[in-house]
Design a protein around this nucleic acid. Sequence first.
DNA 1: TTGAAAGCGCTAACAA
DNA 2: TTGTTAGCGCTTTCAA
Lengths: 339, 339
Amino acid sequence: MSTDTNATRSPTLEMVAAEAGVSRATVSRVVNGSPKVTAEVTAVVNDAIARLNYVPNRVARSLASRRTDVIALIVPESTSTVFADPFFAPVVRGVARALSDTDYTLNLLIASETRPQKTRRYLLGGNVDGALVVSHHAEDHSYVGLGSKLPIVFGGRPINPETFDSYFVDVDNVHSARTATEHLLSLGRRHVATIAGRQDMPAGIDRLAGWRESVRAAGLDASLTEIGDFSQSSGAEAMERLLARGEPIDAVFVANDQMAAGAIQLLQARGFSVPGDVAVVGYDDDTFASTLTPPLTTIHQPSVDFGATMAELLVRLIAGEEIPRRTLIPTRLILRASA
Amino acid sequence: MSTDTNATRSPTLEMVAAEAGVSRATVSRVVNGSPKVTAEVTAVVNDAIARLNYVPNRVARSLASRRTDVIALIVPESTSTVFADPFFAPVVRGVARALSDTDYTLNLLIASETRPQKTRRYLLGGNVDGALVVSHHAEDHSYVGLGSKLPIVFGGRPINPETFDSYFVDVDNVHSARTATEHLLSLGRRHVATIAGRQDMPAGIDRLAGWRESVRAAGLDASLTEIGDFSQSSGAEAMERLLARGEPIDAVFVANDQMAAGAIQLLQARGFSVPGDVAVVGYDDDTFASTLTPPLTTIHQPSVDFGATMAELLVRLIAGEEIPRRTLIPTRLILRASA
DNA sequence: TTGAAAGCGCTAACAA
DNA sequence: TTGTTAGCGCTTTCAA
């Protein structure tokens, strides 16, 4: 019927057994590299396998063994649209790299947001041994809760409290923001403002919190804050509002590079020199960061490591090991000319 | 053992049958939407399913039905590194979109090039109903031949003759190059050169062929050709060699935008105006094409359609329909200022 | 319309 | 070390 188009039915383990003159169990052992099979028998079986061009049926194997050797990496469709997202590709690369040393096969699932049940059923239907969920979104309602049915490691801190008992890997946004702010302070700046990101996303919240901690710890004014939406234009607008306050400002920590670019443009348009009058530190180390004028000092996130860490943790989780609920990936400050 | 960490065993179809007081066959029919089940029975079963929170085990279903409802999209690891590749993301999006209307689940497989057997066995092991293979590479040795065992649609013309009896979707490079060249001709240019791409890749070969056809058809000199490697610097170098020939040149068709950017830079550095002295048409419509000076006239490839077409064809192939071995996706010329 | 029963191809006790 | 024998959870004839 549906597969008319295609070739002859694949040889089964049973056929190999017949060809080799042994039992199916023995063939299974050879295929799975069991140590307790004579060298001769192994050779005979391997011969038969080669002759028949046998490839084990993984579906049958899964059903019997209750393992699949497959790990799913789930990307919400909206994220995949933002595929060009500079954060995403390296994460996938990290996952793929970490998994290539194991027997797991990687499955990148583009989760249709219009038909979430499809993905849910796929995950719960025994197709995978575990899942990795990455997203920038604040919450992923669809996957929250699945953690109790399937080993799952989330990438990015879920804002949703329900998810707090799940495993996640995240960049240490608070600490990174402190690093950035403290760098500004170490430059002797005493009027350090911040342009924060959306306050419904962990990245927005945490980076603001980090800035606040540092500024307060230095005994300075922690009211110089404006909120943007991570877009370049919102960065310019926030900078404008900051300036409009009429208070002195000699440094700004901006929650992402896009907004930092906007802020710098506005500062320069208003006649301020960067970093002369106002020093600026961004966040993300986007590809364009080094080409800005002046080149942007910013926080770099090791995205490949991020992906690799997620994968390693999941493998351990599947193996039944204890892993920390929360793993923070360190970042580093990239010093360029803007601060 | 390995899944100690995780929750209770999922309910089986058998448990649903018991709960609903019917046979397993009936439950199976309800789950699969068979028309010949009474409305009452259907209701009772659905109730039981809801109560038990039952999700069918797809592995078991696959084993019994010999279908998986999964389609794999295979990306060689090297391509995934080039994830940022502007061609790739939209193709994936197109595939995902086309599949979201169907019952198929998409599986993006990052194929480890160091362990090709892993992917091969996965595909042949009954995990998927069909596969899509995309790559820029000239040949994909690993998948050639699999087409006889599994429905496969390739993206991009395989250069390898073995693959000629497989199904593939490609951009009509020859025709696109003709369109570009004829545009130059229609502008009244009579000394139309070309900077071709690598001649070990279909895109390089076919775009050169298209240019040649058009130039010859117009009865003009088809010797004004230099080869680059698709990089910007190679474009500049090729342009320089073209100029060094000392023959008149008033237009150039360049096999991709990167090289076109290089060629334009060189032309301007040598005092030629573009398009005044030399008109230039590129290929790819890269994001930067519109920001060049002058904005680049180029060929746009509809990558989303490309992916969607691949997916639709595969679905039909799996369904046993006849599909063309070769499907060409049309492109369009984007007129900007360089020609 | 519903049920009984026989597998799908493999793994994993348990015996031998 | 090897073979025997139950299943894994579901679909699918075939009968009823």
